[in-house]
Design a protein around this nucleic acid. Structure first.
Length: 506
RNA sequence: GGGUCGUUAACUCAGCUGGUAGAGUAUCUGACUUUUAAUCAGAGAGUCGCGCGUUCGAGCCGCGCACGACCCA
């Protein structure tokens, strides 16, 4: 990168050098603004065009120069800080010849400090008339074009810092993300949930079925796995007597990337003792609809051109009901194990030999129903066959006390009443290990300590996971998960080869 | 993994049927004390993603590779 030597970069460096020769500190740490830019408009609101603030107060602001309009002996430019943007007017007569001479070498992109008084221009734009000008950080690279901005998504992801400078929508998205997570914490805290931090490095990967990242601890000389889910640790805390816990943090899965998958992603997981999955449906619709309203000012939003209404109550249906009502499958077929499997095959679903009707139903659901669930919908009564961690329904052991939440055709949350029978849990672990699939990287291991914890007694409980990235996508109308992750994973940039070498000379 | 599309100046994009590479913004020089996509005059800036091939000649055609986007698995 440092080898880049384009004309523009050379000119910028030369200009910086010439400023330094004039005695300007290009990277000064001596200016601290007393004001944020957003404080100024209310102070100058009342001013008439072409009048100056009668209080004659001197404001002090700092920020990045975003536009520049220079004249012979004066200039207008806009500076932006994290709170807003304002126009600054510089006049040679105000600053003196020497300062104005250095100002002439300021560029778009420089970070500067300004002291001056408020006034309105003849077209009525509130501006700061600069008395003092201080260079805080000289920019050596040109910013993207002011009119079109930065449209190349690859550059926006790789150089997020540039994206954030020039793309207001991108700044808004990430501010909203911060708000969403803050509100989530507030909502859960208000309901007595404790936020906890459990290990990110696990000796035994568990709590989900996914390929883990493996790492190695040198001093202990042991392999560790970046966690694929915090579930088993949060449940240990239920055993310990913390009745409501949550964690918002990263999970890592060593799988493919897509517009909906990043290898590290953020999950909210929370557990509530003595609750059932039904209560979590209530909690979930309250939480998400409230957050949406707080962040967007409405519960009726648009996602990628589709209207979505998040106002509660949300639809609830069992998987069978969804297959009947949404996919139009005959109830008689669903009641017959062989017919369900036959139907799945007829629809082109490939089922393994040992797959039962539960698997067939789930596949049919994914194929025919999921994408049609636009407004939020809780789908309950997942087949036991596909829900190894969930508690069986006490009336119908074929299904579990579980729901998944779908919005805009996408899974947003997964929850169930938790299994707390240590004997059953041990058997399920053993079954998973015995059925070890053909994928070497997804390996289930017996978590002896977790079973031991359950043997002490875990209260009945319900637990849920919500994908924060997907929720942020929904609430910010972002088409790709990379638009809501500040630094998404991409393959490494290829460094340009600096020279062509002729081969074959020896 | 498969398919489609993209990669040209710092940024946004043109580039015809294969014949010496274009614009706007940005930059530089000059003019300019109320502009706001400032204006006016002039100038510089490119290994056309990388490699190989076809051709007298390739930004353009063919093959391969890299990176990215979208769709599919």
């Amino acid at each position: 990168m440092s080898k880049e030597n384009t004309q523009v970069l050379k000119q910028r460096r030369e200009k910086a050098d010439s400023l330094a020769d004039l005695g300007v500190n290009l990277y000064s740490n001596a200016f601290t603004p007393a004001n944020r830019i957003k404080e100024l408009p209310p102070k100058g609101e009342h001013l008439e065009a072409e009048t100056q603030d009668e209080t004659n107060y001197t404001y002090s602001i700092a920020g990045r120069i975003m536009t520049m309009r220079k004249f012979g002996k004066a200039a207008f430019f806009n500076i932006m800080d994290s709170s807003g943007r304002i126009q600054v007017y510089v006049k040679k007569a105000d600053t003196g010849d020497d300062v104005f001479a250095t100002f002439k070498k300021w560029d778009i992109g420089d970070i500067v400090g300004i002291e001056g008084k408020l006034f309105k221009t003849k077209v009525g734009e509130l501006s700061v008339r600069a008395d003092k000008l201080i260079m805080i950080s000289k920019s050596l690279r040109p910013l993207p074009e002011k009119f079109h901005g930065l449209t190349d998504v690859e550059t926006r992801y790789r150089q997020r810092y540039v994206d954030l400078i020039v793309t207001p929508e991108s700044r808004e998205t990430f501010k909203k993300r911060v708000d969403i997570v803050r509100l989530m914490r507030e909502f859960l805290s208000n309901r007595g949930f404790m936020e906890v931090e459990t290990p990110m490095m696990h000796p035994v990967p568990g709590g989900a079925t996914a390929k883990p990242f493996r790492t190695h601890h040198n001093a202990l000389d042991m392999d560790l796995y970046l966690r694929i889910a915090p579930e088993l640790y949060l449940k240990r805390l239920l055993v310990g007597g913390f009745e409501r816990v949550f964690e918002i943090n990263r999970n890592f899965r060593n799988e493919g990337l897509s517009t909906r998958h990043n290898p590290e992603f953020t999950m909210l997981e929370f557990y509530q003792a003595y609750a059932t999955y039904t209560e979590l449906m209530d909690l979930t619709e309250q939480m998400i609809s409230w957050i949406c309203d707080e962040v967007n000012g409405t519960m009726a939003i648009e996602y990628q051109g589709t209207q979505v209404n998040l106002a509660p109550p949300w639809k609830r249906m069992t998987m069978d009901e969804a297959l009947i009502k949404v996919a139009g499958i005959d109830a008689a077929i669903l009641a017959d194990d062989e017919k369900v499997i036959a139907l799945a095959k007829e629809k082109g679903i490939q089922l393994e030999d040992q797959a039962g009707p539960g698997k067939a139903k789930t596949e049919l659901f994914e194929l025919l129903v999921e994408e049609k669930l636009i407004d939020p919908t809780f789908v309950t009564a997942y087949p036991t066959e596909v829900s190894p961690l969930a508690r069986r329904n006490e009336e119908n052991p074929e299904v579990t006390d579980r729901f998944e939440l779908f919005v805009t055709g996408r899974e947003l949350a997964n929850a169930f009443s938790e299994l707390n029978d240590p004997v059953d849990q041990r058997q399920r672990f053993e079954k998973q290990i015995a059925e070890k699939g053909n994928d070497e990287e997804i390996h289930h291991e017996m978590d002896e300590d977790f079973v031991r914890a359950l043997e002490y007694g875990m209260p009945s409980a319900a637990g849920e996971g919500i994908g924060i990235d997907r929720l942020v996508m929904l609430l910010t109308d972002a088409p790709s998960i990379r638009d809501v992750i500040l630094f998404p994973h991409l393959k490494p940039e290829v460094q340009k080869q600096s020279k062509k070498k002729k081969k074959g000379k020896d």
